[in-house]
Simulated scan of single mutants.
Amino acid sequence: FMPFITEEIWQSLKGHLDYETAESIMVSPYPTTDDGDGDNREDLEIDAEAEKQMAVVIDIVRAIRNARAEFRVEPSRWIEALVAAAETKPAIEAQARAIETLARVRPLTIIGMDGTRPDKAKTIVLEVAEVILPMAGMVDIEAERERLKKESEVTQAEIARLEARLNDENFISKAPPDVVERERKKLATQRDRLMRLGERLSQLS
Rank of each mutant, 00 (worst) to 15 (best):
F71K: 05
P118D: 10
E169H: 13
L194R: 01
I159F: 02
R184W: 12
N167T: 10
M2H: 11
T33I: 11
M138V: 06
R106P: 01
K120C: 08
R147I: 00
K14W: 01
P107L: 13
T101D: 08
A85P: 07
F4G: 00
E70M: 09
N170E: 14
V179I: 15
I159C: 03
I46D: 13
T6Y: 06
T109H: 04
E151L: 10
K186R: 11
R191S: 06
E7P: 00
I58F: 09
A86I: 00
A164Q: 15
V57G: 05
A91L: 07
L162C: 02
D47Q: 13
V27L: 10
D35R: 09
A129C: 13
E74Q: 13
S152T: 01
F4C: 00
M113H: 12
T109M: 13
E87M: 05
R62A: 14
R117N: 11
G137R: 02
V179T: 15
K89G: 05
R145Q: 15
V83Y: 01
L166I: 14
E49D: 14
I60A: 03
M2L: 12
P107C: 08
I64C: 01
K120P: 06
S12Q: 11
R184Y: 03
E87Y: 01
P29I: 10
A81E: 02
T21W: 04
L13H: 04
E127C: 10
D18N: 12
R165Q: 11
S12A: 13
A94Q: 08
P3K: 07
I141H: 08
K89H: 07
A94M: 12
N167A: 14
A136Q: 15
V125L: 15
M2P: 00
R117F: 12
N170V: 13
P31V: 05
R68Q: 06
T116R: 15
G198L: 09
E42V: 12
E87T: 10
Q11Y: 03
V139L: 14
D37Q: 03
R182N: 15
A98W: 12
N40S: 11
R145L: 12
T155K: 08
A164V: 05
L204S: 10
L162F: 10
T101K: 13
E146S: 04
A55P: 03
T32Y: 05
K52T: 08
L187M: 06
E70G: 02
A103Q: 05
E153A: 11
A55F: 02
A55C: 04
E144H: 08
R72Y: 00
R184N: 01
A86W: 03
L194P: 04
P107H: 06
Y30E: 13
A160I: 13
L148Q: 07
K149M: 10
V128R: 15
D35A: 09
A84M: 11
S205K: 14
E130Y: 04
Q53K: 11
A103N: 07
P29Y: 00
R182W: 09
A69N: 11
I124N: 05
S205F: 09
K122I: 08
A81T: 06
P90E: 09
